[in-house]
Design a protein around this nucleic acid. Structure first.
Lengths: 107, 107
DNA sequence: ATTAGGTACCTTGCAATACAATATACCATG
DNA sequence: CATGGTATATTGTATTGCAAGGTACCTAAT
């Protein structure tokens, strides 16, 4: 898996998953890992950044299976950013796919 | 335009364009700029790297409109890399789109 | 009780890459 | 001869993903 493809896209994925339900870091790693490889050393700094930027807030909850979980919740700002990122992602991939296909076909 | 989305994808785009015809750096910048913003300071180091890795070779050709152009040609190795990158790109974007759509729909 | 393995958090140092800014130099037009 | 477009290239900075490591909780087997 090309590491570079992931740059910036991970943020989009995390926000998109949090849109559906609150998650803790370890859960996000396992969830996203089903789609493509991702490590904890990537997620935790990313989550800290998202919180610092006000895209998410957190709350703690105890677990019977291990240490306390820190759940992340999407804020209103985070929701807006997510919409922007999604739109950018779709238009970007469309542009790339046009280049890959020879770019004769412009709709 | 999210800078991070471009990471690594630019290499794919450049190789894909070179697959169709030989290009010089400045031409690639103008060509790709039609799809998304890209600067010269990004392309030239990238092209040097591609040459160092044996994905492209170069030849010089004079121009009436300005300084000598350095044309880049895809090698056999470059062609193979391009095929790999394309496949990775398609499978990666598919995975991301599944996450964005809620990932209930697995085909 | 001690060990092992799974769960869960976090930090540090490193690598890759895109960009702005800058530099050089050619050519044509005013 | 100055401006603007063409064309190449380098330097320093910022961002982000990862491997490796550390802390700590819980359960089950030894």
């Amino acid at each position: 898996m090309n590491i570079q493809f992931k740059k910036g896209v991970l943020e989009l994925c995390v926000l998109s998953i949090l849109e559906k339900k609150d998650c803790y870091g370890y859960e996000l790693v396992n969830n996203i890992s089903k789609s493509f490889s991702i490590s904890e050393g990537t997620i935790y700094p990313l989550l800290s950044r998202l919180r610092k930027e006000g895209y998410v807030t957190t709350y703690l909850e105890e677990s019977q299976e291990g240490p306390t979980r820190k759940y992340y919740v999407l804020t209103k700002t985070g929701r807006n950013i997510l919409e922007d990122l999604k739109a950018e992602w779709y238009s970007f991939t469309k542009a790339v796919n046009q280049i890959l296909k020879g770019s004769e076909a412009y709709e």
